[in-house]
């Protein structure tokens, strides 16, 4: 189906697979890890995977809207990471705990 020699020549499919891998690992990090900060790191990985795919499409065609959208995503993701960290710091100051299994019950 797919020969090895054609896999060696880098094309759009390679970049899409890389972005997809980052997206999948980010999703798995959010789903599987229990530490709040590590979940925020998973969100950053998600956004980077998406950035890669946008830039790959922009590189392989002659459209530059991909780069403009990546610019916006980069900025908003950085700001949202700041907000998430500020909230995490506030939660830690209050409860001394960043493990989300501590917050699973509505109590107190």
């Amino acid at each position: 189906m797919i020969e090895l020699s054609s896999l060696l020549e880098v094309s759009l499919g390679h970049y899409i697979f890389l972005g997809l891998f980052l997206f999948a690992v980010g999703l798995l990090t959010i789903m599987l890890r229990k530490n709040m900060i590590v979940m925020l790191m998973g969100v950053e990985l998600l956004l980077n995977g998406v950035n890669t795919i946008f830039l790959a499409f922009s590189h392989f065609s002659s459209h530059t809207e991909g780069q403009i959208l990546v610019f916006f995503i980069l900025t908003v993701a950085a700001a949202e990471a700041g907000v998430g960290l500020a909230l995490a710091v506030s939660i830690y100051k209050e409860f001394k705990e960043v493990n989300i299994s501590f917050f699973e019950s509505l109590k107190g």
């Binding site: 790959a56 590189h59 990546v70 610019f71 980069l74 993701a77 950085a78 990471a81 700041g82």
Partner: peptide, 28 residues
């Protein structure tokens, strides 16, 4: 990103993401 021809975005990724956002994560 630099290799892909998006030079400005590669520089911004290094300066903003790798140089400030993840520094915040590590500091926190």
């Amino acid at each position: 990103f630099l290799a892909m021809g998006a030079f400005f975005l590669g520089g911004v990724q290094l300066a903003v993401y790798a140089g400030a956002v993840t520094v915040l994560f590590v500091m926190v």
